[in-house]
Amino acid sequence: MLAVQHAASAPDPLSVPSNAPEHCPGTESELAGKADACAGCANQEICASGVTRGPDPALPLVRERMSTVKRKILVLSGKGGVGKSTFTAQLGWAFAADEDTQTGIMDVDICGPSIPTILGLATEQVHSSSSGWSPVYVQDNLGVMSVGFMLPSSKDAVMWRGPKKNGLISQFLKDVDWGALDYLIVDTPPGTSDEHLSIVTYLRDSGIDGAVVITTPQEVALQDVRREIDFCRKVGIKVLGLVENMSGFVCPKCKGESQIFKPSTGGGRRLAQDMNVSFLGSVPLDPRIGKSADYGVSFLDEYPDSPATTAYLEIIDKIKQQLDVL
């Protein structure tokens, strides 16, 4: 189903093997090979011998690769379809607008990569060289890596369980020739599961500068975003702030503003207050944002007059300020 080019074949970075029993304590656990669940597992002997308990062999490689990356930012949201990838792309474009700033975008949404389309790179392929996989460049200071560049056809489903996804994420971090970067922006899938745990684990040593959390105004989305902020706290990631997307729609005909997704419980602003994170701003719903994403062009450049552009730029400024202080 999926053909991925393999660069240097690395030791298996999995903490839970793909054929593990369901209560597998993890190969690095004290209980590895000794828990009840281990009885009958094909890997029991290896685990029990203790060789698996050392730190993940990928970690030093990731640390080395990331040593030339100044700022690492995650874009998160518990909910899908709130605009994580769109925001990631705008953030990338805005950072890269300064030609002295080197920016990288890493898409760890393995099952539904949108970044290639949004950045207009849908047909690109990854190339590998002696120094690793080379990112695909939007412009000379904006490099991108996504599983979307590795699929023979965009129709192909990536039907992978967690361990395989983790393996690819570690490769994105250690095998991609990112070079010296001022910013690495990581776009994540919805939820709080394998991809999120992996990226946090792999980047723990190198340090994550913070996470931008995206939401939409309705309670159904806010519920998931609360969980995401809870996740950030559990794993010790600083929340740079909350962005509310799709807040209010301005009719192109009558210019009247209406709420498509009503903030029935106070929206993002209230949530930010309740959970004590900073509120970075709201971006109104502009149909041209989605259109730009489909065509792979920068919304900020195409429609500089849109109120959404102003909102985006203000939010990005706030993020930059926060990062500069760090």
């Binding site: 839970v16 369980r161 967690g162 709080t192 599961s193 999120h196 609360r226 969980r227 809870d230």
Partner: peptide, 9 residues
Amino acid sequence: EDSVVWRGP
């Protein structure tokens, strides 16, 4: 606001 942070298994 409890998050369910679970891996695949």
